[in-house]
Simulated scan of single mutants.
Amino acid sequence: MDCEAEKTVLTPDLVSCRQKFIVSEKEVFRFVEEVFIKLGATPEVAKCVAESIADADNKGHYSHGMNRLGLYITDVDQGVLDLKSTPIILAESAATAWVDGNNALGVVVGNFCMQLAIKKAKESGIGWVVAKGSNHIGVVNFFPEQALKEGLLGFTCCNTSPVVAPWGAKEPALGTNPISFAAPGVNDDSFVMDISTSGVSRGKIELYVKHNQPLPVGWAIGSDGKYVTDAKDAYEKGALTPLGGENNGHKGYGLGLMAEAMSGILAGSKFGPFIRKWGKKIERGDLGQCYACINPEFFAPGYNERMSCLMDYLRNMDPVDPENPVQVPGDWERNNKKKHQDKGGVSYSRVQLQWTNDLAKKLGVAPLKFK
């Protein structure tokens, strides 16, 4: 059988093939959009989440793309997420705003807040918006990149379910609390940082569980505080470690606490150990998030040129390994997008596609078409 031929279902022969299957970004968008419309979302909301998921996988952030679809659906089924709700502004000034996400889908809240921050930054030089009552927002760099399109610097951080043990502790009390920052250069070049303040994101642990693979040493600890490599054990009973590892975990711990201070604490949402454990407890997320923009035109002239000068210098430095040139944060994602464009789509495992195929049958939507 020719496993490269385009199929719409995973036949027994296809299941036995040891390869990835290629799905176009347009097809990913179509599938996710139809799924959310079937779940009761408005076309606008379905489009928002489809853009976010397709964008994450296209960049290579598989942990926050299609991999997150199941948890979103569970939240909808359990009634802890409102697909028809819209955010509202509780208070604002020329440069700031406090928003209630009204339990809307996280990407809907994020888009609302970032667009508000962009507007304020254009008018006042800076826009700083925090939101309570939100939900998981997907891959975080999706939002600072919106600022880039307007020639602005963008920043996003948020809190998440408590799965990270503070440096020196055995039990989780903070989320992976990701931070993303984007700065524009010339000719659409840019610096885009997106990091979890844990050593690795929770979503990557989930992927190791799904594929029954052992974790690298140092990613997670058990209840005794010692490293564990069993992915399922780490996911169900353990805790992630802060960014920086055994000797420098105080740095990731501090960054995670900073993200919490600027999102959950500032916005008045739940925070730290008081946030529900996503996927394990039927309870509203009430997550806190921060979205900020800076207009470089209010500061020293020539920002983009100087930023590009620095990025080009770094990229042209002599690498330790000639096969792996020095990169700037954001290059990895751009390279993945180029690779996927050349291949005609994103690569998915048979495990992932089998799950989406089962979901399609359950909801009565057309399954993903792959190559």
Rank of each mutant, 00 (worst) to 15 (best):
T241N: 02
G79Q: 06
G151E: 03
L368G: 01
L69E: 01
N111C: 06
A97I: 00
N212C: 10
E6K: 14
F143G: 01
S269W: 12
F112S: 01
K170F: 10
Y62G: 02
N335K: 15
E145Q: 15
P87F: 10
P43W: 03
N247I: 07
Y227T: 11
P184T: 03
D233P: 00
M262D: 01
P87T: 05
C158W: 00
D321W: 10
Y313D: 11
S349P: 00
G279H: 06
V164G: 01
M114I: 07
E236Q: 14
Y291H: 09
N159L: 05
L116M: 09
I221A: 02
G40W: 08
D13L: 11
L255Q: 07
I275F: 00
R276Q: 13
A97G: 02
R18A: 14
Q115C: 03
P325N: 11
G106I: 11
A261H: 04
K337D: 02
G345K: 03
L255S: 02
N111T: 12
K251H: 07
I126V: 15
P166V: 08
G101V: 03
K122A: 03
S196Y: 03
G344W: 15
L255E: 01
G249C: 10
G125W: 05
E51F: 06
P273Q: 07
G279T: 12
S347I: 09
G70L: 14
K232M: 09
F143K: 02
M66T: 04
N336P: 03
R276N: 14
M66E: 00
P172F: 13
V228I: 15
A300E: 13
N177V: 04
S308L: 11
V326I: 15
V109A: 14
T42V: 07
G203C: 04
L255C: 06
I265C: 08
P214Y: 09
M262T: 01
I88R: 13
L310A: 10
V108F: 05
D321Y: 11
S349R: 06
P178L: 01
P319T: 08
C17D: 07
S263H: 05
G344L: 02
V192E: 06
V80N: 04
P214S: 06
W278N: 08
K281W: 06
D286Y: 10
Q352A: 15
K149M: 11
I22D: 06
G345S: 05
D358V: 08
F191Y: 14
V163K: 05
N357I: 04
L90D: 14
D358T: 12
T11S: 14
A95I: 05
P319K: 08
V351Y: 12
K369R: 13
Y253L: 07
E171H: 13
R350C: 15
G151T: 07
G285Q: 08
E171Y: 14
A97L: 05
W98K: 08
G106L: 07
L174T: 11
I265G: 04
E123D: 12
E44D: 10
L207W: 02
V139M: 12
V129T: 06
G285P: 04
S196T: 14
P178K: 05
F21E: 00
N248Y: 15
Q352R: 05
P178Q: 00
K232N: 12
D55H: 14
M193I: 12
S93D: 13
H340R: 13
L255H: 04
F112L: 02
N212T: 12
K119S: 13
P319N: 09
P87S: 09
D77Y: 12
D312S: 15
E323M: 11
G238M: 10
A41V: 03
